[in-house]
Design a protein around this nucleic acid. Structure first.
Lengths: 114, 114
DNA sequence: ACGAAAGTACGATGGCCGTCAAACTTCGAT
DNA sequence: ATCGAAGTTTGACGGCCATCGTACTTTCGT
């Protein structure tokens, strides 16, 4: 109602909160990575070795569900997200994950056959 | 009412089926190990370095639930089970797991802090 | 200024899974 | 032969989570 009374929210203001990786438990990581769709996302980011927008990774789910999965991954400290135009970019927090859970990421993405 | 017509079922006949480990997918393993109770069981077997009966591992759940968890672990190819008297023994299939999913077991049991 | 593109927010829904209690089975000991 | 110990089986229940459609927001081109 208040005609544009709210401050204009743009660009950087849209970036969601990212957790400190050291506060993440193994339990959280496993709950995030037990889902095949989310593990697929991580696998793509892992082999791409660069940030990817949500759209570039095609998933067997609707857009709203995809958003949900990216959110879970971010909240688990596994990816970082930021905006580039209308696209939301996603990057794997590889080094941090490796530091917090040595060997885990490699063991999971290596699990080819699934 | 065939008086004892059924063949007496004893000892070895009670051992449940164990899957060939190479038929197990990473997805199955993760679904098994995402549960904290089951991961605790695996952790105990891992550090004990010997077979343990269900009773020796104390769990924060009822006996029937414990049975359920051991079953899941067996069906996921992670443990083998056999009877010793009234006790059911459980052994970690460590070498087979390591062969099928290199580095996974170590990464998971190392996750101390949860 | 408009429209399309790329996601997001919000319920609603459906299925799966961890949990338990109660009744039962199997075995060892007395 | 009985009892107790150790698990199992079955059925029921509750909660969580992946999924979707719809409506909405932000940004970029034109």
């Amino acid at each position: 109602m208040g005609a544009m009374a709210t401050t204009r929210r743009t660009g950087q203001d849209r970036v969601p909160p990212h957790p400190d990786i050291t506060t993440i438990t193994l339990q959280q990581v496993l709950e995030a990575l037990v889902d095949p769709v989310r593990r697929h996302i991580v696998g793509e980011l892992y082999s791409a070795r660069q940030d990817l927008s949500c759209g570039t990774i095609d998933l067997p789910v609707s857009k709203s569900t995809a958003t949900h999965h990216f959110n879970v991954l971010r909240e688990a400290g596994l990816i970082h997200q930021y905006y580039a135009g209308t696209s939301r970019m996603n990057g794997l927090r590889r080094d941090e994950i490796d530091a917090a859970f040595p060997g885990l990421l490699r063991a999971l993405v290596a699990g080819r056959g699934d």
